[in-house]
Nucleic acid binder design. Sequence first.
DNA 1: TATTCGCGGGG
DNA 2: GTGTACGCGAATA
Length: 890
Amino acid sequence: MAMEFQILDVDYVNLNDKPIVRFFGKTEKGESVCVFYEGFKPYFYAAGDNVREALEGEPEVMGIEQVERNIVGHHKPQKVFKITTRNPAKTPDLREKLRAAGMVVYEADILFKYRVMADMNLKGIGWVRTEGDEFANTETVQADKKFTVKKLVPIEKEGNADLKHLAFDLECTSSTGMLPEPRRDPVIMVSIVFSHKFEGKDSMVLSTRKGDGVTSFDSESEMLEEFVKIVRRYDPDIMTGYNCNNFDFPFILDRMYKLDVKPLLGRCLQKRTSHRKIGNISRVNLTGRIVLDSFAIIKKDFSLQRYSLNFVANALLKEQKVDVKHSEIEKFWKGSDEEFRKLAEYCRKDSRLAMDLVLKMKLADKYKALSRVSGALLQDTLDSGETTRIENYMLREFNRKGYVFPCRPDDATAVKRGLGRKEELGGGAVLEPIKGLHSSVVVLDFKSMYPTIIRSFNICPTTKVMPDQEEEAGVKKEDLIVTPSGARFLKTDKKKGIVPGLLENLMSERDAVKKAMKGVKGESKSRELYAKQWALKIMANAMYGYFGYARSKLFDLDIANSITSVGRETIHSTKDVVEKKYGYTIVYGDTDSVFAKLEGMEDMDEMGRISDKIAKYITSNLLGSMELEFEKIFKRFLPLTKKRYAAWKFERTKDGWKESMEMKGIETVRRDWCKLVGETLNVVIETILKKEDVKGAVKYFKAVIDDLLANKIDISKLIITKTMTKAPKYYKGIQPHIELVTKMRARSPADAPGVGDRIEYVIVKGKEMLSKRAEDPSYIKEKGLQIDASYYIDNQLMAPLERIFGAMGITKSELMGGGKQTGLLDILRQGRIEAAEPKILKEIKRDEMTGFLCSKCSKHYPRMPLMGSCGCGGRLNFASANGPAEAVVN
DNA sequence: TATTCGCGGGG
DNA sequence: GTGTACGCGAATA
């Protein structure tokens, strides 16, 4: 009998002194599976003269065999010892023992499940077929199908099994007003939402109080026991919740521990579900299932202003939470039946939103694809970074080519590498932007620059030849490629590097998937292919970083530097060719792109044709698979500094040119800015770029300021929000939103915001310090208070807008009305500005300047206040550590 | 201008 | 479990 399933999780147990590997999975029909595989012996490698002696009499060692393997850094196979052991868990001991004896160990830090998967060529989320199945009569695991198998064979099969999801959410009371703590605060309610009907229901609410639509319990421990039973009966593949990794799981597990409820939420009935917290990150171990925290994934994959459940649900699902403030939970819990019912619906809705985010936003798709490409298990793809995936992917290929893989470095080595990195590792080239507003700029970029450099120069730990290694490698100088940083690699025809080979596979497979996408019909199929090509791209792009990462098993600065040095040289030579051969100015460039100015050109198609021609010519002179291509047109391009610019972009599509704005390094939405800032910034940038109307932009900005001063701006645009994370008394510094809460409590304790609430405030006029002048927007309207216009001008609007206008050569004094405004058009025409020369009196260097100092009362201002003089009426000088000065020089 | 610090999200 | 450990904006030197 045989069976096919998709691998969800793998672990092992020791039975009779032998490891038995367990594969948890799901069949196409939706049955949960657990198969047992026996007979795989743990092993690793060691090199050195005293390996046998060092392991003499070790009961854990089953065999030591001398074998030949390739080792990174050598060009001929080396004699190493393959050490076979009894128990994977004992490997670290043996490893350290060998190291203490001066031996070098290999592959002695690979998790046993990954050792097995790599050798059997099995991948996370990959499909597998079993052979020699025998029914396993065991109650140690929970699954629809349980078998002991003789063999597991990977199979090529597209599509994904239908996974069962369970979302849950807790409500707790708090005895302190701070976040509830499991050591003293109880769970009062648990909501559960099912992706597939469970006993006829799609959701449940459990609680220790009775109410409509709620399953009630006499005690918290009975409720938690039932929660465990429901999970087991429903048997989900994926458990989710919003911030469940950091709150709901740790909380409920700690409560179970305290109340003596067995936390058996996984598919193994012998392994308790546990959580471990390191730093701020907590991870949950659910054997046979997967924990997917929708908050964690959304934070990684979506760029939003805020990540509260309500904000995210609004932005992504157009839904909102039931309206209950955190501070009201306890009130509703103890309140009327109606209030309790509302709390239950609030709780249910939170689970439903967490579930909808996962299912409707397809949060797991990308990660499934990454697992299938890299081989890492889905849980690891979700929780850990690129390292796990790259190492899984590389290990397999290195082993196939007869290499043993190095171990990861110890902390001391990693720290040393990290320190050395800064001076020794060069990054990409960033060309100095030519200041001013530019028109008719085309952007050309190198397709997958670092992967193609690695391929074209055959850069790999297996092809690197050190100065004294020519003889060992059996090569001559002409067999080597030298990179600009001076490292030497074997040419491809001598020996193809493993990493270049992997990249070639990743990139050609991606091309094939993209081709297949064109002919595909059906939304789910095309989504799957899209995720696959995305994963292939991510894996290819991650390869470079791995060589420069301090904890990498293949850390090699020669390699990292070789890759970036080729990149830098390529950018500079591309700039030369475009400028000298074609006569166009490069106005900017960063790592893998150059921005060329096609002076005076208007016609998009014409600009596209010229770009294509240039790109094609340059590509023809590049090595190997490196390729320059036309990417987009910036009809207007306004650089502020390196890595920061605004542009009016046109992209070529099959239906003509698609227009949009592109901002790099310029935020128009920040949570500590009021709406007015973003709005003003957007209008100003658009006016400059689209209408080329700098005067208009200045005029608009001045009008905003006039409106502010005249109290004509709607208060809603001036609201700043901040969360109160703890009770006011625990704040050490004085902060506006906390001062406001204190005031609001004095006015009306019942309506004042509580811990965890977001506080909205507006700064009003007054004599007190700024923090004391934060006010509640509705209170302002009610009492007709005046807003503090100069605060909004100096502390909110000025800095970001000054940067934009500064890039156009407009100084603050010109902006604020006093200065001359002639010359703006000249600036535009020239596309270049010079900094104004300051008059020299008593001077300090620019970087010495700390702000402004009143000559009368010595008050210090970090930034020039709006009125241009001190509040006391005194004149302002420049301030520095060496005292005041009248001028600043560069 | 670089580096360290603090806090998000959950109740 | 043959383990590993966030990330960005603000404040500060």
